[in-house]
């Protein structure tokens, strides 16, 4: 599929999203209180259906849709401020404080809770789930179809998988059983941390990073203001594995949530891999 076709597909999907009628029994006043449900809801809701998103959604460092988030009222996930909006549906993540969810349910507000996505397949499921709770299954289907097409375009020759490790503040890494690990695999890398037994998101001592000697380290993007936690990313050991074309490879807002923006992260990272292996098209 060419770039033109992809853009066309995207335009069609947007057009469909705009004109698609809302189902009769669909909720009319929806509030989202989790960064990831914020983005899914902004993608799928009918105009006027979504009232408010969480304040994190407008932070460009965490949110891939910070621009769009400005069009919605901001909430801080507090039961009181959500209740006064009189929503007929609240969408939340499993990491939303249990006390908030149960308070809302006691107040008679239905809450739909979304699991975080851990694989690319989970992203399709979350899209379908959001389409269902918003009463917009057809829009969700279109988006899933588009997602599949873009994902298929990424499956290229991956016989040469460079060994990479993800490394975050405080020495955390991510194995294959995480969304970030899945992005790494989809982009054609092998996860060196996973090989060493770090399967989930967990702490990997700097010494272990040095011992597994990955071909590159993909580091987390820095937040403003300094912190000691992020100083580990300046350590000479990381510098020894980050050089040339991979110097700039960073995890950013596209990596945070299970949304189609993950594909943008995969595409960027695949470009880095092609730079490393010399398989530039």
């Amino acid at each position: 599929m060419t770039r033109i076709q992809r853009i066309l597909a995207g335009t069609v999907a947007l057009f469909v999203a705009a004109v698609q009628p809302v189902q009769a029994d669909a909720p009319g006043r929806v509030v989202s209180i989790n960064l990831c449900t914020d983005q899914l809801a902004m993608m799928l809701a009918a105009p006027g259906q979504l009232l408010s998103v969480s304040h994190v959604a407008s932070d460009p460092r965490s949110s891939a849709m910070a621009g769009q988030a400005g069009n919605y009222r901001m909430n801080h996930g507090l039961a009181e401020e959500i209740y006064v909006l009189q929503p007929d549906l609240v969408v939340a993540g499993t990491w939303t404080p249990h006390s908030t969810v149960s308070m809302l349910e006691r107040l008679g507000v239905p809450v739909a809770v979304f699991q975080p996505a851990r694989t690319l397949a989970d992203i399709r499921e979350r899209l379908v789930q959001m389409g269902e709770v918003l009463g917009r299954p057809a829009v969700a289907e279109t988006m899933v179809a588009e997602f599949d097409v873009r994902l298929a375009a990424l499956q290229e020759d991956m016989s040469d998988r460079p060994r990479a490790a993800l490394y975050y503040a405080n020495g955390y890494t991510a194995g294959d059983q995480t969304l970030a690990g899945q992005i790494l695999l989809a982009a054609g890398f092998a996860n060196a941390a996973d090989e060493a037994g770090y399967r989930a998101g967990m702490k990997m001592p700097l010494e272990m990073l040095a011992m597994i000697a990955p071909e590159t380290v993909i580091a987390a993007r820095r937040y403003p203001g300094g912190s000691r936690s992020e100083e580990i990313l300046d350590h000479p050991v990381l510098g020894a594995f980050r050089s040339g074309s991979t110097m700039t490879a960073m995890t950013d807002q596209d990596w945070v949530c299970g949304t189609p923006y993950v594909l943008r992260a995969v595409e960027d990272l695949a470009r880095t891999r092609r730079g490393m292996t010399g398989a530039d098209r």
């Binding site: 405080n170 937040y223 403003p224 203001g225 992020e230």
Partner: peptide, 9 residues
């Protein structure tokens, strides 16, 4: 601090 890690330090 605007840095999310700062307070835990």
């Amino acid at each position: 601090s605007p840095n999310p890690f700062a307070a835990s330090e």
